[in-house]
Design a protein around this nucleic acid. Structure first.
Length: 850
RNA sequence: GCGGGCAUGGUGAAACUGGCAAACACGCUGGUCUUAGGAGCCAGUGCUUCGGCUUGUGGGUUCGAGUCCCACUGCCCGCACCA
């Protein structure tokens, strides 16, 4: 009989669906396990081969947990609000709701085709009003606690999406999504006070089982730094507040810099205190016009304008020092103003050089005429620093902070890079913000009873150049009455960002049909935290951080019983594709043609780079539609079946690392399944492991069990392949075969189920107890050990397992090659490692016996 | 610039706390069966002047180093004027 994967896979998918084999129970005596993968955005392109990698991995873990006797929650849903759907709707004049529904249907059928053991009764969809009712509800709670607030500030404005972006969505000064330039725009926005949670988001990382690089990246993003906040007096009468991490260097502050947007600059301009007001205004205008990208590009050349007419007083020296504005000082970090210490800060040094400002050395150890000495070397000594002279940097910092505190002009201060989260978007396809603007009462939260605030059906979803949401044109929808005073009022027309719905979705899975709460108390208590969450590194400072923040807030208001949402976080590498424009990937005929044309291989490579750009130099690149190297999972399933796809994608390489898809290699996985299928012909009767295979089976069970836990799926599969190779060599019985099927079941569930049935196995294979290994049955009776002479391998000998040192050495010396080497030598030392090796240290025999 | 990671055959990759480098696959070569084979099966496959030599380069520690230490080179990722 042939391995007819199409019918087999369909058959078992149907069985699992009808029997709800993979449904989780909210009431069970078994221990619970909650495994989570990041729910997909249902794009119009359908599932990509990148999707099944993390899904299959977590599916394997969850299937194993079920076999180990756990009550497993392994849910799936759709993060369906978002721009691509909206843009598609605009272009094709269809409702985003309809686009979303179609895309979800497509994704669902593709996911089912791959045999993932999701609990299909718990699917969530962030665009479902029953779902986003609770997204809005959480927002209201944040509003009530003052954590959601409206603020006017310079925001990142994507010129193409016509929409504001969070800092996390701006990459290298361009929009993360569309790559268009991002500019600064002063706008009134809803903000979420994530910075109030900065310290806790940082501290609580310590106790979490996250892979280290995730922790490191979150810590860097939160960016905690300690120093001092100091007040400098100015000749205008106003005080200037600055933040510094190097209060020890204050004697070296020879000038001050404010960001061009700083409020004091505008105040002084208005008061006419600046003699060069025009120049200052011109610089401000120029800075505002620059995009983020230009700002970073200009990084090397420091520009600025001195404020004529006002100066500051360095409190340590009492000397007057000039004040500049420059865009190298950010308005959004610290206080938006700094004391400049050119001797010990490279940026200040460069600025001082271009403006010919004095550079004073206050910490010994460098040469400040050549470059700033920025080393925070604890043992370096202070100079030119009054009462700090002679102290080490380590002692100077607290001494200065004490001095500032006593004088009442400064104090110790902690600052974070993390900034509050810009939470409104001027788009249609998102959750409406449930806040009403009343001319009398200001911003008024909607009554919880009136949630969800539904998205209205509009005719046009086009964003506007004025920066208003498409909802603003819906006068019928916008007009409402104020819940507080009953007077005429208006709905907020901005919507929430895509990150809103995903910030709490894992809680909804616990109790997805609850109409009374985002999830019932019992369900929240029972499922506790997500035990294992696997997702992409690209979400580390976005979704992962955001959802930790929301969860902590929900904990604070008593909604959830846990401080952290995810106990364990792992991450997968991307699936890459071959670059069809790279020389190595061209077919040989084309290579030859190009070589002939361009004068050799080097010329051909250069030609390709000229034609396609730098990218042509890389043989392996991200899959992209424009390159035409995208692999569609449907094609693979049609050709080889879902089990082969699952197996290959797990066998492809280290799970944490990026790996290139190789079409030809897929066949190897199919071949393995064919071999397993054909092995059935060789199965002899027997209800316990055959003697010849027993040790290998136990070893394989251990290897597969342990490798799944550490996500080393590739070596787990290699171990199963080896076992199958052994079965072919040595033969096998029914018990041997069924052990293999149980091990394979999490990886390739359909074929395992089918062959289990052939074997007359009771019940479903995926419902069997996970096989156990016994160390005592794993060892062979004989071992082949290495014999080294002076650390170099010279021979191998076979000895009984667990032989003692003496036996090992004797066996080693008995070897023909070794005994030849012993001639004229004497043994000075031996090193033995049990069951592994003998190392003999020889030296020439001294002829003289005396 | 700062932070993190990686470097092993023609390719994807293995190698537990230092202990037989290249497991398991892909590809390739030869054979076999076949009307045929882009199917299956069998054998071979790091290099080699057959002494040996091999884990990006150069040092070190050790009886012994892919693994540990130091220096360097090259790639990848994240952040990036964060005071």
């Amino acid at each position: 009989m042939k391995y007819e994967f199409h019918s087999i896979e369909k058959k078992w998918q149907q069985v699992w669906e009808e029997n709800k084999t993979n449904a989780a129970s909210n009431d069970s005596d078994k221990p619970k396990f909650y495994g989570l993968i990041e729910f997909p955005y249902p794009s119009g392109d359908g599932l990509h081969v990148g999707h099944p990698r993390p899904y299959t991995a977590m599916d394997i873990i969850c299937r194993k947990r079920r076999m180990q006797g756990y009550n497993v929650l392994f849910p799936i849903g759709y993060d369906a609000f978002g721009l691509p759907t909206e843009n598609y709707a605009i272009k094709n004049h269809v409702h985003p709701k309809d686009v979303t529904r179609k895309n979800i249907e497509r994704f669902t059928s593709q996911l089912k085709m791959l045999g993932f053991s999701f609990d299909w009764d718990r699917v969530v969809d962030t665009t479902d009003p029953k779902y986003y009712k609770w997204t809005q509800w959480i927002f209201l709670q944040m509003f009530k606690k003052g954590l959601a607030y409206k603020a006017s500030m310079p925001v990142n404005w994507c010129t193409s999406c016509k929409c504001v972006l969070a800092n996390e969505e701006v990459v290298n000064g361009v929009c993360e999504r569309c790559g268009s330039p991002v500019v600064r725009k002063e706008k009134s926005q809803w903000m979420l006070g994530i910075t109030q949670y900065a310290q806790r988001l940082l501290d609580d990382l310590d106790d979490l089982d996250y892979i280290e690089r995730v922790k490191i990246q979150q810590r860097n993003w939160i960016g905690r730094s300690t120093g001092a906040e100091v007040t400098f007096k100015t000749t205008a009468g106003d005080d200037m507040l600055i933040f510094t991490t190097r209060p020890d260097t204050m004697f070296g502050a020879t000038y001050m810099v404010m960001s061009p947007e700083h409020a004091l600059v505008n105040k002084w301009l208005e008061e006419g205190k600046l003699r060069n007001g025009d120049a200052v205004r011109a610089y401000q205008a120029e800075a505002a016009r620059k995009s983020d990208f230009e700002r970073t590009e200009m990084a090397k050349d420091k520009t600025g304008v001195v404020l004529e007419g006002v100066s500051a007083v360095n409190p340590t020296t009492g000397g007057e020092i000039p004040i500049f504005i420059s865009d190298y000082v950010l308005s959004t970090y610290g206080t938006g103003a700094i004391m400049a210490v050119p001797g010990h800060d490279q940026r200040d040094w460069e600025f001082a050089r271009s403006f010919d400002l004095p550079i004073i050395e206050v910490v010994q150890g460098g040469d400040v005429t050549k470059e700033a000495f920025v080393d925070k070397d604890e043992n370096a000594r202070m100079v030119n620093s009054g009462f700090l002279n002679g102290l080490s940097v380590k002692d100077a910092i607290p001494t200065m902070i004490r001095w500032l505190t006593e004088k009442g002009i400064g104090e110790e201060k902690v600052n974070f890079k993390l900034r509050d989260w810009v939470f409104s978007r001027q788009r249609y396809w998102g959750e409406p913000i449930p806040i009403i603007k009343c001319p009398k009462c200001g911003w008024v939260p909607m009554d919880e009873k009136d949630l969800p605030l539904l998205l209205p059906d509009v005719k046009s979803y086009e964003p506007t150049d004025t920066g208003e949401s498409p909802l603003a044109h819906m006068t019928d929808w916008v007009k409402c009455t104020c819940p507080k005073c009953g007077g005429p009022a208006e709905h907020e027309t901005d919507t929430m960002p895509q990150w809103a719905g995903s910030s709490w979705y894992f809680l909804r899975y616990m109790d997805p049909h609850n109409d009374e709460a985002l999830a019932g108390k019992d369900a929240l208590k029972y499922w506790d935290r997500v035990d294992w969450y696997n997702g992409g590194m690209e979400h580390t400072t976005l979704h992962l951080l955001y959802s930790r923040f929301w969860h902590k807030f929900l904990y604070d208001i008593g909604v959830v019983p846990t401080k952290e949402p995810y106990a364990k976080r792992t991450s997968h590498g991307m699936i890459l594709g071959l670059n069809p424009r790279n020389f190595d990937n061209l077919d040989p005929a084309e290579q030859d043609r190009l070589k002939a044309e361009c004068g050799g291989e080097e010329g051909a490579r250069k030609h390709l780079v000229q034609q396609y750009g730098e990218m042509a130099d890389h043989p392996i690149v991200k899959m992209s539609k424009s390159l035409g190297n995208v692999i569609n999972p449907n094609d693979i399933v049609n050709l080889y079946g879902a089990d082969t796809l699952r197996l290959y994608i797990m066998f492809i390489g280290d799970f944490e690392k990026a790996a290139p898809w190789q079409d030809t290699a897929v066949k190897g996985s199919k071949r393995f399944l064919d071999r397993v299928w054909n092995l059935e012909q060789k199965v002899k009767p027997g209800d316990s492991y055959s003697r010849e295979n027993e040790a290998s089976i136990h070893r394989t069970i251990r290897k597969v069990s342990e490798d799944i836990e550490s996500m080393k799926f590739n070596t787990a599969i290699a171990a199963m392949m080896s076992l199958v190779n052994e079965f072919y060599e040595k033969g096998l019985n029914r018990a041997d075969y069924m052990a293999l099927l149980k091990l394979m079941s999490p990886f390739t569930p359909h074929i395992a189920e089918e062959l289990w049935e052939h074997m007359g196995g009771e019940g479903l294979c995926c419902r069997q107890a996970w096989p156990e290994w016994d160390e005592r049955r794993m060892t062979e009776s004989e071992k082949t050990i290495a014999v080294q002479v002076g650390g170099k391998l010279r021979a191998t000998v076979t000895i009984p397992a667990d032989a003692d040192e003496e036996t090992m050495i004797k066996a080693a010396l008995a070897d023909e090659k070794i005994s030849r080497m012993m001639e004229g030598m004497e043994l000075v030392r031996t090193i033995t490692v049990k069951n592994k090796l003998v190392n003999l240290i020889l030296k020439p025999k001294t002829l003289d016996k005396a």
